[in-house]
Write a protein that binds this DNA or RNA. Sequence first.
DNA 1: TTAAATTAAATTGCATACAATCTAATTATT
DNA 2: AATAATTAGATTGTATGCAATTTAATTTAA
Lengths: 152, 152
Amino acid sequence: MGFKKKSLDEDECLRLDNQICFPLYAVSKEVVRKYKPFLDEIGLTYTQYIVMMVIWEGKKLSVQELGERLYLDSGTLTPLLVKLEKKGLVERSRSHKDERVVEIAATEKGTGLKVQAREIPKKISGCLGISVKDVITLKKILDKSLKNITES
Amino acid sequence: MGFKKKSLDEDECLRLDNQICFPLYAVSKEVVRKYKPFLDEIGLTYTQYIVMMVIWEGKKLSVQELGERLYLDSGTLTPLLVKLEKKGLVERSRSHKDERVVEIAATEKGTGLKVQAREIPKKISGCLGISVKDVITLKKILDKSLKNITES
DNA sequence: TTAAATTAAATTGCATACAATCTAATTATT
DNA sequence: AATAATTAGATTGTATGCAATTTAATTTAA
């Protein structure tokens, strides 16, 4: 006795291994890296890929709507969309109703790319190295968190 | 009958909402954003913070070891460590044993910063907006994934 | 031993991210 | 209507990330 165990607050709370943010950050990066070889084949980066995924849903979208969906702002999206336009995958046009709004739609070539992209989820499944059950649990928790974190 | 339900592979697999990678990517970014106001107070970015967390553990580390711990390469670490050195938080020195190796250690000022940083985990706890139970589950799965994903 | 192979950092180039600011268009106010 | 406030994108500046290359030091092999 006499020894007072150092509180977790004082000594352990700053250890990397005790952070939840770190594995989140690290796994996220590593997963993106796993996508790279497959995305290289169709000439997209990861961010361009998730942008295309929303565009492939078919509805014409404004930059704003795209940003709300992907949690990205115009500082990221504008240059990225310009690149996708240069590749001939999307069309950017000012809305007639409101000239401030830029609407994004897939070109024929952009829609065509979807066919090639279809193989990617299959190829990448299992990239997390955990059981299907864990993947489902993980997705459920992350979706919940994403919802709550962006509301507050 | 006669209707064949379109297979998930063909039509649904490319929907953003069906990806596990996306909420992972999005939550990770949002969490880093949550840290920002607190990290601003002590003048660190998120990446600088996790680097300092490893350095605060006390052991002198090479750039390589730091990179293995954080899954970052010299292309990211070198300029970041130069910045931390300019702020007076760390010292970079060539190893005597092997001149190729650069060893990193906290300066007195860098160690001092730890005291201020101690409040951050407390302030940030709950930032995911999910229950403690879910946080524990999440961490368990992510740690497992991080281990497996970086082995293969 | 001396050349070849390997290794650790540093450097270069490209693509995000995001805060902050700017500009033009639209809406709300007086 | 004229001005003020707001809004959507674009722009600027800073900080990552990472692949690929380079450089210098060390180790391996011939």
